[in-house]
Design a protein around this nucleic acid. Structure first.
Lengths: 198, 198
DNA sequence: GGCAGGTAATTTACCCATCAGTCAATTCGG
DNA sequence: CCGAATTGACTGATGGGTAAATTACCTGCC
């Protein structure tokens, strides 16, 4: 490896590139399973550069959370805007698929089951999850109200189930990258109708 | 914190006790997020004792996987035996609830999203998940065949979704310990019928 | 019933790799 | 020539793992 000295890569580009590999690492191994050294190595740079740009492991994770959080929130918001309040779960899923087609581990980063709850990154995780949950809650509420169930805990649990369902689909997709976003949407449509739900 | 010397606790008892806390730790923080030192501290003993009994972190995890694996496989097998091949998902869920009522993190240990795939523990994880998936696959196959879908990948994905759904319910339950197993079963029955599936 | 001695339980103190994080120096681009 | 990009080399802490010593229990024997 060459010595010190700039290589002509702008900070913005380098940050993007680092976050690229960090998102994959965090998505694959979870926060605790990732070492900053490994991220730097896979990005082809040295560890101090990561710290110079992101300040701490938590800061690096924060950057990842913000990227994928924005991506996912925009996708879901867009889907809801397009299909109005009658939008079904499939529209949301479909929008998510096209949004994360180039970033298969986006969802897994935000839904790491054991993220660092303390610190700025944890706060961001809470906020993004909250926003996504709110948007998904409308659909859940429609389903439950239609069936006459009003228990707020039911709503909570149904939301959780929905989030983990998406996690399942996303992780399966990450291991079957040959599937296109459209194919995934079709497949999920098949499964959903087979389950008898609308 | 006395010095060295036995405290009159048999190896079997001590192992049980260590696995008790290890299951909770692994379930809460995931394999990578757990330190053997922390397990030992929470168990009120010293780290070398853990190594003397379980040989390595992987060995400790293996012991946890075997305990919860047996618990879960027995529960599901029992449910299937009782309700025959017409058993629905709810019977399985209900059996799982009563089985893990005293061990809320059992499922999360076996379904750690980033377990150490290399080594004996990883092998055990694969095997137990396989057995549970086989037993669950019957139900999934029935659903999909009824709808005329034969794609084996659909079966795979539906299985994955089922497992993550259970994960969601189990983790939600772990954070709402005041709910009884029966209450959880009822709640899931409500949700399932609200979703329109049988 | 008391005592020698093997065995099982348990700890203190240590080793080495890795990890998060820092400093000072170096090199290039504008 | 200044500022930004970049690194090798370092530190303190922690993690997995080990060696050796200490204490208690148990068994057979007188």
């Amino acid at each position: 490896m060459g010595k010190a000295g700039t290589k002509g890569v702008s900070r913005a580009d380098r940050e993007r590139q680092i976050v690229d590999v960090a998102v994959e690492e965090f998505g694959r191994h979870g926060y605790a399973g990732v070492s900053v050294t490994a991220v730097a190595r896979r990005a082809g740079i040295s560890k101090p550069l990561v710290y110079s740009y992101f300040d701490a492991k938590d800061g690096l994770y924060l950057a990842c959370v913000q990227r994928v959080g924005a991506l996912l929130v925009d996708a879901v918001a867009g889907a809801r805007a397009r299909s109005g309040s009658t939008g079904h779960a499939l529209d949301t899923l479909s929008a998510l698929f096209t949004a994360v087609e180039q970033c298969p581990y986006a969802w897994s980063v935000l839904y790491d089951p054991a993220p660092p709850w303390a610190g700025a990154a944890g706060e961001a995780v809470r906020q993004y999850r909250e926003r996504l949950a709110e948007m998904g809650a409308a659909g859940a509420a429609r389903l439950l109200d239609r069936a006459g169930h009003a228990d707020p805990l039911d709503h909570q649990l149904l939301n959780e189930i929905w989030q983990y369902t998406v996690t399942a689909v996303m992780r399966w997709w990450a291991e079957h990258p040959e599937q296109s976003a459209a194919a995934m949407a079709e497949r999920c449509a098949r499964l959903l109708t087979a389950l008898g739900g609308g």
